[in-house]
Amino acid sequence: MSVFRSRPALRWLVPAAAAVAVIGGGAAAGTIVASADPSLPERSAAQLLVDVQNAKVDGFSGTVVQTADLGLPSLPGVTSGAGSADIMKLVAGSNTARVWYAGEDKARVALMGTLGETDVIRNGSDVWMWRSADSSATHYKIPADKADKKPAALPTGVPSTPQEAADAALAAIDPTTAVTTTGAAKVAGRDAYELVLTPRDTASLIGQVRLAIDAEKHVPLGVDVYAKNANDPAVRVAFQQITFKVPDAEQFAFNPPEGTKVTEPSAADLAKEHDKAITPEQAKEAEKQAAADGTKVVGTGWTSVLVAKMPAAGDDKAGAKTGADQAAGQLDAIVGALPKISGSWGSGRLLTSALFSALITDDGRILVGAVAPEKLYEAAGK
């Protein structure tokens, strides 16, 4: 029997991705020394940053738990309907996943939602994605010239482990944040140091981002995102259990269950999937296109505000509603339930949470940032 069927896991999609994505600032590491437990050697913030960047393990397996409480209001289409339970768990609930890793070419993430289980596995040049909800599987065969690239187990921008969540936070480091340490911690029964990223700009809704770093292996064991003045994290992604042992080969073997519809993408499709990473030149071109479309960032660091146009609905040639049109309809229902506001910048609707605010203007713009609404109004008037 497939290990996917014998050992199902609960779904884990990481709302911390959104929280970390709005972190526009980081810190100069400085020379602050960790007040570590007497059993642990002292490590400065700068040393811990280097430890994380240079960490390398041959293999591990464990259970990752994600919890969130963003304080969002009840919204139509989100709090009811198919799949709503999974969506709500991302903003006010708990999710769990099992992960296995035995090198860049042997990795597995097991996910489960209300409507079924999804498994992603790489075993050498073979990559499988299996969905129990519709009894479907997609099998990718990685070309030899792409074998050194790591396939994405989750949608772009969504961390699938605390390591990826930590990488996203650390990549944003610059002088707008203070980086300190709080000493020793315990995560998944292991000794860890705690690295704290704090925005210097008090206008940010994010109070701190805390990274628990394994004292021996130097890999992140957990990431906590705190709202300003909060005692409990709004988002947490952490190992509940972890073993630094190379998993058995059987964990990466997959045979489609009977009745599964298997799709084999073409080599061209696979090449596109693995060529998603863009060059600096392509990034500049994308920025130019985004600017032409009205997308821009107002401000810098932790209090930067993203300004973009709301997505437009579309119809296919037969005049039927497309997926984009249906999604736009759902979005309209959500926006219509938000409180109306107005000011010198215009009028629109406002969504607030513990970690971010979003302003949808009547002239078709959306502004999002880890800031209080006043910052959005200011950006909307520019």
Score class of each variant (00 low, 15 high):
Asp119Glu: 12
Ala312Gln: 15
Leu49Tyr: 05
Thr303Ala: 14
Lys288Ile: 07
Val196Leu: 09
Leu205Arg: 05
Ala230Tyr: 08
Arg190Phe: 03
Leu376Glu: 05
Pro265Ala: 11
Trp302Leu: 05
Ala291Ser: 14
Trp12Gln: 09
Leu205Phe: 07
Asp316Asn: 13
Ala27Glu: 04
Pro199Tyr: 00
His274Pro: 00
Thr79Met: 07
Gly157Asn: 06
Asp325Thr: 02
Val235Tyr: 00
Lys149Asn: 09
Asp224Thr: 08
Gln241Asp: 14
Pro339Glu: 09
Met129Gly: 06
Val223Gly: 01
Gly343Tyr: 01
Glu164Arg: 05
Gly294Ala: 09
Ala92Leu: 10
Gly113Cys: 05
Asp148Leu: 10
Val223Trp: 06
Pro199Leu: 01
Glu194His: 04
Trp130Arg: 06
Ala312Cys: 04
Gly381Phe: 08
Ala212Arg: 02
Ala333Ser: 15
Pro280Phe: 08
His139Pro: 01
Tyr377Gly: 03
Val52Cys: 05
Lys284Tyr: 04
Arg131Ala: 12
Ala286Arg: 13
Ala137Tyr: 00
Lys288Gln: 15
Ala380Tyr: 02
Val187Asp: 02
Glu287His: 11
Leu355Arg: 00
Pro76Leu: 08
Leu48Trp: 07
Arg131Ser: 12
Ala168Trp: 01
Gly319Asn: 08
Ala313Gly: 13
Ala165Thr: 09
Gln251Tyr: 11
Val209Ile: 15
Ala34Tyr: 00
Asp275Gln: 09
Val57Arg: 08
Phe244Cys: 04
Ser204Asn: 07
Lys150Tyr: 13
Pro373Ala: 10
Gln163Ile: 14
Thr295Glu: 13
Val235Ala: 07
Val335Thr: 10
Ala370Tyr: 03
Arg236Asp: 12
Ala320Asn: 15
Pro257Gly: 03
Asp119Tyr: 03
Gly62Met: 06
